[in-house]
């Protein structure tokens, strides 16, 4: 009992420790994937993104903290590997209560506010793919602009560009419009948000981009299924998904836990976090290729993917328990 309570407390403390860095990391990564440059994003937008991503942040932190705690647990104190699942479930329950309690705050989606200065640096030629856009301030919300079309070596100048009138942000279509008149001739330039590429150290990393793509693809699969189901079934689906993550990751982490070399256990947490989305994607792809969920579960066929993973997790649990018993037996024999 003492072990279960201690481990539960450890998980909760690790959640508190990691929630801010993980939250910041996820928010920034998601914002960059939405073609919003980060160099002038503003703390308000980061908070808004974090609020919108509250559930994924809490879930990611919870999983990370759980695996970290399991990787560092002393195997000598673990009487049964099946009992090792209890502290995460208790911690998860507490967190779920808090999430439900704060659900009023999450209901309203916070909007990400973008202005022209989110995308454009003043007094610089901003790269917009095929062209360069230069703006120079002439007064409050008033600019002179130069637009250079690289392919045609064509430079155009415009004066008295007013923000909101000649230069407008079209958030619905995710683009910036620049409209002006020169010598009686009207010109309209359209710059999609994604053309304003501002690279940062994190977002230009190929490995992270690949990982983010896997997560996004998985999130889409799960979200599609979740929104398709009625409310109660959707909740059950969500619950089983979370349970499946715990059931597969805890025994693998525990199997790689080694008090004789603690750091290898910590390293394995990252390995599992990397492999988990890939395992889920493989299972979803296989089910899709096989023609969808099998009908033998009847109304609950949507639980099939999570059940597969839970069963896999139980098998790993059994293997770990058997190996642990053999190890204990050989240690006793040696003694």
């Amino acid at each position: 009992m003492k072990f279960i309570l201690k481990t539960t407390l450890r998980i909760l403390l690790l959640v508190l420790l990691f929630v801010i860095p993980i939250g910041l990391f996820i928010s920034i990564l998601v914002l960059s994937q939405r073609d919003i440059p980060l160099w002038n994003i503003g703390i308000r937008n980061v908070m808004a993104a974090s609020q919108n991503l509250f559930l994924p942040i809490i879930f990611s932190t919870y999983i990370f903290a759980t695996l970290f705690a399991v990787a560092l647990v002393d195997p000598m104190k673990v009487k049964s590997i099946f009992a090792l699942h209890i502290p995460p479930l208790i911690a998860g329950g507490i967190i779920l209560v808090i999430v439900i309690f704060t659900s009023g705050i999450q209901q309203k989606e916070a909007s990400i506010r973008t202005g022209h200065l989110t995308f454009l640096r003043e007094n610089s030629f901003n790269n917009t793919g095929n062209s360069l856009l230069y703006i120079r301030s002439k007064g409050p919300s008033l600019y002179d602009a130069y637009i250079y079309e690289k392919d045609y070596n064509n430079l155009v100048a415009a004066t008295q560009i007013s923000i909101g009138k000649q230069l407008r942000i079209d958030n619905n279509n995710r683009r910036i419009l620049l409209e002006f008149e020169n010598n009686g001739q009207k010109s309209l330039y359209i710059f999609p948000f994604k053309s304003f590429v501002h690279k940062t150290t994190l977002t230009q990393n190929r490995f992270l981009s690949f990982y983010a793509k896997q997560i996004r693809s998985l999130q889409r699969n799960i979200q599609n299924e979740y929104t398709r189901l009625p409310v109660n079934d959707a909740r059950l689906y969500g619950l089983f998904m979370v349970l499946s993550v715990l059931m597969i990751s805890i025994p693998i982490t525990y199997a790689l836990n080694d008090q004789g070399w603690g750091l290898s256990g910590i390293v394995s947490v990252f390995l599992i976090l990397f492999l988990l989305p890939l395992i889920y994607r493989i299972i979803f792809n296989v089910i899709e290729r096989a023609g969808g969920n099998p009908p033998f579960l009847g109304h609950y066929s949507y639980l099939f993917p999570s059940l597969i993973i839970i069963i896999l997790g139980i098998i790993v649990d059994v293997i770990a328990k058997v190996r642990g018993r053999d190890r204990l037996a050989s240690t006793k024999k040696a003694a």
């Binding site: 790689l256 080694d258 070399w261 750091l263 256990g265």
Partner: peptide, 13 residues
Amino acid sequence: RRRSVYEFPPPLK
């Protein structure tokens, strides 16, 4: 703090 206490670490790990 979490160093290997083996004479030589397990190969797989």
